[in-house]
Design a protein around this nucleic acid. Structure first.
Lengths: 184, 184
DNA sequence: GTATTTCGTCTACTATAGGAGACGATTTTG
DNA sequence: CAAAATCGTCTCCTATAGTAGACGAAATAC
């Protein structure tokens, strides 16, 4: 029935499952009850702006980006101009959702990492998803647990077991890399 | 209190007033009661996704764009990558919200109009706002009521009394123009 | 194999979103 | 100036969003 509610529901479930979070875990992180999240994901309730704001906050995404991702669920072609982009105002880290749909379980994200910037990721963000990192431009020091991989343009790294990771651009110019995700 | 609700409230009121619509008129167009819209604009209620979808529909904007505009209310610098863009899938008409804030009551929008495309606007869309059109690139035939203005790159037109208008690109290449809006 | 934890859904209840219409204030019409 | 339309808010009332906790199923522990 309500097309937008459907899209939101699917996207929220996708974001949650990609992180390997249970309803209880998302409930804790967002402050929304797990019963409500369950209803939203099954389209049995239309979330208020307040609830949507808390959920997108838990995912670390601006609400508009979460919805942009939801709205494009049916498209197969994503023009550059339409791709949801989010820039962290502090570091200048820019994340562009390249893939059109969430269908197919495959998602490409293009990231621009300014010179000298460090971006740490907790292990939980990677659970339940396979991912590879392809360095398009510049240099990238990728720390995976204890190991440090020094990548140059063209290098492609497949991540192993979920571990705390750090993206670091050691050079004087911006680095651009592609992250390819798929569910485990 | 709720920062996102505040931003949404302000943006909805702005979009409504820019069109010169009363609460009753927006209520009719969106199917949301005017009492509810009043509450939302005054932050006395948090709209559900369903209601937000109907409102953005009435404004002719995707929900994600409406929210992107709302979220940027506090920023003063809008990088090209962060500017909300919307492309009409049928015509290829692309609208980019260039201005960072809605404050100052001045808003710039960059439009790309593909070759041969006609975009009509009802008079109601212009009521209560002054606007000028600056043609950046290509050619544009702008029909204002009975009068037709044939614009070339660099030409700038100020709109008069609210009338039904048509944007038409008569050439073989895309046209780019800037729309500058301010409240009457 | 049984016990325990963890998962998502369901039940029962409360808070609030959302709608129909009344109301005073302001503007428009004549 | 008075009458009528129109504005936004406010007052009810109902539908539903949202929460706490119970529940059965499935995975995990031991």
């Amino acid at each position: 029935m309500d097309v937008i509610a459907d899209a939101i529901a699917g996207r929220i479930r996708l974001e949650r499952e990609n992180r390997g979070w249970s309803l209880s875990e998302l409930a804790e992180r967002s402050g929304v009850s797990k019963a409500m999240i369950s209803k939203v994901e099954r389209c049995e309730a239309s979330p208020t702006a307040t609830v949507l704001g808390r959920l997108s906050g838990a995912f670390g995404l601006p609400l508009s980006v979460l919805l942009a991702l939801a709205e494009r669920a049916e498209e197969r072609l994503a023009r550059a101009a339409d791709q949801p982009v989010w820039t962290d105002p502090e570091t200048g880290y820019t994340r562009r959702a390249v893939s059109p749909a969430n269908g197919g379980g495959l998602e490409l994200i293009e990231v621009t990492l300014p010179a000298g910037v460090r971006v740490p990721y907790p292990a939980s963000a990677f659970a339940f998803q396979r991912q590879q990192i392809l360095l398009l431009e510049g240099r990238l020091d990728f720390t995976e647990g204890e190991v440090i991989h020094e990548l140059s343009a063209g290098d492609c790294l497949e991540l192993g077991a979920p571990q705390a990771c750090v993206f670091f651009n050691p050079s004087k110019v911006s680095a651009r890399y592609l992250v390819a995700l798929t569910r485990r």
